[in-house]
Design a protein around this nucleic acid. Structure first.
Lengths: 243, 243
DNA sequence: GTAATAGTGTCTCTAAGACACTATTAC
DNA sequence: GTAATAGTGTCTTAGAGACACTATTAC
């Protein structure tokens, strides 16, 4: 019997197949007092009820037109933030990571300037910014400790050859503040001149007047904001990779 | 009513939820006559029956313990190759990419030395190596043209700052052959001395005697094979990024 | 003036790029 | 010898790193 594609589609029903459980999780990073923080939520539902986890959940097959949209929806739901740096990190899937069965999660990472977390969400009993290291030490839901680590690794690596860290500051900011962000996300100190040379050559900032120096004492500092749609600038050489 | 996690899991059935269709696809690359080729299969089944597509398909919830395993299984099924470079590229999902409904695919990329494709697979009427550019011009199934492009982009980028191209050659090979591989995967010419300096500093090859020069004329060339488990060497600077 | 922070000048060092050179082979 | 390919020597260049220097402010 030869079957047309139309006929095939008519009788196709995904429920006849064993499929994995699919979710999207987002590691949302920001800087608070020059310290890396990650937004975590406390689960209101089984499994792993009451444990802290990354914001995330199922794809809404009617609302979400694509994966990025699904991740963006999670981000907005927890922060109100609509645009920011959002990138896919990795997809993790295995038979064991969720007690409900074979499960797969698409991990995203977002960088945003600080905002208070929104809490109008029933699937969650609390939402708050954790200092990154402290979050890592919690007993998290599922394999979210591993996911946090992967997002952190990506963040560190890309901070070395892109201008990603501009996304975690609330403009306007000084170059000293920006350097501190780079250093915190990179995990190593950067030489001041090297840093400034690079930022200048990347051409991603706009001057917006002068402001107070760090600590309130000393020479006034130039203030900057990111150029609209900060170009995805990639440098040929990476920072802080010497032995 | 308070419900324990055990009770919750007992009554949980994924079939009560709308979930996306989930697949794994693998862009398998090799070099044939110094030309980049990609392994494609002709679909035996709806949808998109008889169109060429990337090897891939559903996760086997009982056989595959995790995602990487699923990708490895696809690779082995089509090539017999069990180990090689295999890395995740990106996960693409949308409501529209598959006529059966909301679908998501985890795209992998593999690099292997040339082997004849295996064809003992019922879901497929043919399997063959296509020159990459020619494959891109075919009318492919689903959004596989986009997937091919993403895998190609990743391949090009990583060939600039890693030793990835060592994986597409059948050892032993000469440095000239290896340079040609790098150039083909990168898409730009590399200066001979720069190339040799870098390969030497990466320390990923072992000498295995002497062989004929390229074209059969001229001085004999040293032959090499990759060191076992070729280290994931990343250079601080990228090749061929000048303007 | 001093202390503190912002910002620059300039040398060194590493590794890519350019390119001419030597080495080895077949004929 | 010539032609062809393998492989090296060495200068230039770009950009990170080091670090001392100047500039501007509050006090």
């Amino acid at each position: 019997m030869v079957q047309s594609e139309q006929e095939f589609l008519k009788q196709y029903d995904i429920r006849n197949y064993d499929v994995p459980l699919t979710t999207v999780d987002v590691a949302i990073f920001t800087l608070i007092n020059s310290q890396l923080h990650v937004l975590m939520v406390e689960r209101a539902e089984h499994p792993h009820k009451q444990r802290w986890s990354l914001p995330g959940g199922f794809i809404d097959l009617t609302q979400d037109t694509n994966l990025q949209q699904a991740a963006l929806r999670k981000l907005k739901q927890k922060t109100g933030v609509k645009t920011s740096h959002l990138e896919q990190v990795e997809t993790i899937g295995s038979a064991k990571r969720d007690p409900r069965g074979w499960s797969l999660t698409v991990l995203y990472m977002a960088l945003i300037p600080f905002v208070e977390p929104l809490k109008d969400d029933l699937s969650v009993t609390d939402a708050k910014w954790w200092p990154f290291e402290k979050a890592l030490k919690q007993r998290l839901a599922f394999d979210h400790k591993v996911l946090l680590g992967q997002a952190r690794d990506r963040l560190r690596a890309k901070s070395g050859y892109t201008v990603l860290p501009v996304h975690v500051l609330t403009p306007p900011f000084t170059l000293t503040q920006l350097q501190q962000s780079f250093e915190e996300l990179l995990g190593v100190a950067i030489e001041k001149k090297s840093f400034r040379r690079r930022i200048q050559s990347a051409d991603v900032l706009v001057e917006v007047g002068e402001g107070l120096p760090e600590g309130g004492r000393g020479r006034k500092a130039m203030l900057y904001k990111p150029k609209p749609g900060v170009p995805q600038h990639a440098f040929v050489r990476a920072f802080g990779v010497d032995e």
